[in-house]
């Protein structure tokens, strides 16, 4: 007989997007008018903290609220969504969704597999089969396809074992699928949340968050990607030149944007990070840029991940600024420098 999983109030607090948690929230019958009550003020301040933690990228251990009433903690989740829906900044929503979903992943990694399966099955309604071998989990393929975080490499369906409608996955992959679900759940909830009136207490919170966000938004707009390595040491001169032009908000030609974006994607930057690079462009259009960068990353269209131009082509496009000795490709320059400086050829920067 299968041991039953006990889904506690703490679990609902950790996984507020599950059916059990949402049901619990509904039963609490808490309305936005209640935010004016003392208990509501606690909910509101926790909701604000949740968003601020995300903006400030607080380490999860530090962000974890201590000694709180779990029901109040649970209520802070929908409340933060209402605040974000009112602030209505797509970028902030994504910052929050990514932070919260990474927190979910963190929690899940500490759980035993049975609990994770329970969450997927009973909390999200996914069709999961569990067995006892290494690839001991199987998920009905359409859930896999819907929440697949990437379409490349080991995530690609064709590189999985698919049988009788079920994809074999590891525990870790199931955690990633749930993380992706929670991220999209939050984004969708923020886009759809509507309130009929705006009580005073809530509008003060919205203002506070907006102010805080406005002061740090710029930081998100400049590439944070160079935090751990000194770009001047590891990027080839052509890429540094392009980066400088972009930062000054100068319009660079299409070929330059292509070279920069493909370079960054190839050294392991995420699509979001690369999009952020281009925010300072005078003609920046997030949707268009996203489409193009995803295309270059091989997530769209032909599914070919593009590489940067080789030096010969950089030269003929007028993008080369210095003749680097023995270098035939900008990426070769990068890997050589990284290799020398950090000892390994393909360090994840």
């Amino acid at each position: 007989m299968e041991e039953t999983v006990i889904f506690t109030l703490e679990d609902k607090f950790k996984y507020p997007f599950t059916a059990q948690a949402r049901d619990h929230i509904r039963k609490l019958n808490f309305s936005i008018d209640d935010l004016a009550l003392p208990i509501g003020r606690t909910v509101l301040s926790l909701a604000k903290k949740r968003i601020l933690d995300a903006i400030r990228r607080e380490p999860f251990a530090k962000a974890e609220p201590k000694d709180i009433d779990l029901e109040i903690g649970l209520l802070s989740f929908p409340t933060s969504i209402i605040i974000l829906a009112q602030v209505s900044d797509e970028r902030l929503v994504r910052v929050f969704a990514i932070y919260e979903s990474k927190k979910v992943r963190n929690f899940l990694e500490e759980e035993n597999t049975r609990k994770i399966v329970y969450i997927a099955r009973n909390g999200l309604g996914w069709d999961i089969r569990s067995g006892s071998r290494k690839f001991n989990l199987a998920i009905r393929f359409h859930y896999y396809l819907t929440y697949q975080p990437e379409y490349l490499g080991s995530w690609k369906l064709v590189n999985k074992v698919l049988h009788d409608g079920y994809v074999l996955i590891t525990r870790h992959e199931l955690i990633r699928l749930i993380e992706e679900f929670s991220k999209r759940y939050i984004i969708k909830a923020c886009n759809e949340a509507r309130i009929s009136r705006l009580p005073e207490s809530l509008s003060i919170a919205i203002e506070e968050i907006s102010r805080e966000w406005a002061s740090v938004r710029a930081k998100y707009e400049l590439p944070k990607i160079l935090s751990r390595v000194d770009e001047n040491e590891v990027y080839p001169p052509c890429i540094i030149n392009l980066l400088n032009l972009v930062r000054r908000g100068e319009n660079i030609p299409h070929s330059g944007r292509f070279a920069l974006a493909t370079f960054m994607l190839n050294i392991g930057k995420s699509v979001d990070e690369v999009i952020d690079l281009f925010r300072t462009m005078p003609d920046f259009d997030e949707n268009k840029t996203r489409y193009q960068v995803e295309h270059l990353a091989g997530l769209r269209g032909s599914r070919i991940k593009y590489s940067t131009f080789k030096c010969l082509n950089m030269k003929s496009l007028g993008l080369c600024v210095k003749d680097c000795k023995d270098i035939k490709h900008p990426l070769q320059y990068f890997y050589r420098k990284i290799g020398r400086k950090y000892g390994s050829k393909k360090t994840n920067v």
Partner: peptide, 23 residues
């Protein structure tokens, strides 16, 4: 469309990579 492309690539063996394929 993304999910359908994954199914399409599956039936045409597109992107099979022996670095990742189990077995």
């Amino acid at each position: 469309q993304d999910g359908r492309r994954e199914i399409l690539d599956y039936v045409r063996g597109e992107g099979i990579d022996f670095r990742f394929l189990p077995g």
